[in-house]
């Protein structure tokens, strides 16, 4: 398993794992602490991209014979783009109704 984890570039798979984990938890942290809707959306994108890095890295290092992970990552990017488009449209709608895109204003409903 040892040689598998390092390919000819000399970068071990764990280094990529570290990057993707940092991105993932930065996304979660941002999702909970940011007050602006656009920033929350960007945090969500960080989470999705962290998963994409994982797919690409696992495919390249552990299962180089097939391209399954790469394709999954490609599809995910496309789907994430759709999600962002719809989210931005709804955020614009919020902006029109409330006058800004801050989370603190979104408290019409409680209980």
């Amino acid at each position: 398993m040892g040689e598998l984890l390092i390919n000819n570039t000399g970068v071990p798979v764990l280094a990529y794992q570290l990057v993707s984990l940092i991105m993932f938890f930065a996304g979660i942290y941002g999702f909970f602490t940011r007050r602006n809707l656009m920033m929350i959306l960007i945090s969500v994108e960080l989470i999705l991209n962290a998963a994409d890095i994982n797919f690409a890295v696992f495919n390249r290092y552990l299962y180089p014979g097939e391209m399954e992970g790469m394709f999954f990552a490609l599809f995910t990017i496309a789907i994430a783009a759709c999600e962002t488009a719809v989210a931005i449209a709804i955020i614009i709608n919020v902006y029109r109704n409330f006058g800004n895109a801050e989370v603190d204003n979104l408290k019409k409903m409680k209980g």
């Binding site: 999702f31 809707l37 929350i40 969500v44 719809v86 709804i90 955020i91 409330f98 979104l106 409903m109």
Partner: peptide
């Protein structure tokens, strides 16, 4: 409705 929509899309994306 706008508020519910934004809550749903962000949480479902999350």
């Amino acid at each position: 409705s706008a508020e519910a929509g934004v809550k749903f899309i962000l949480l479902s994306a999350f």
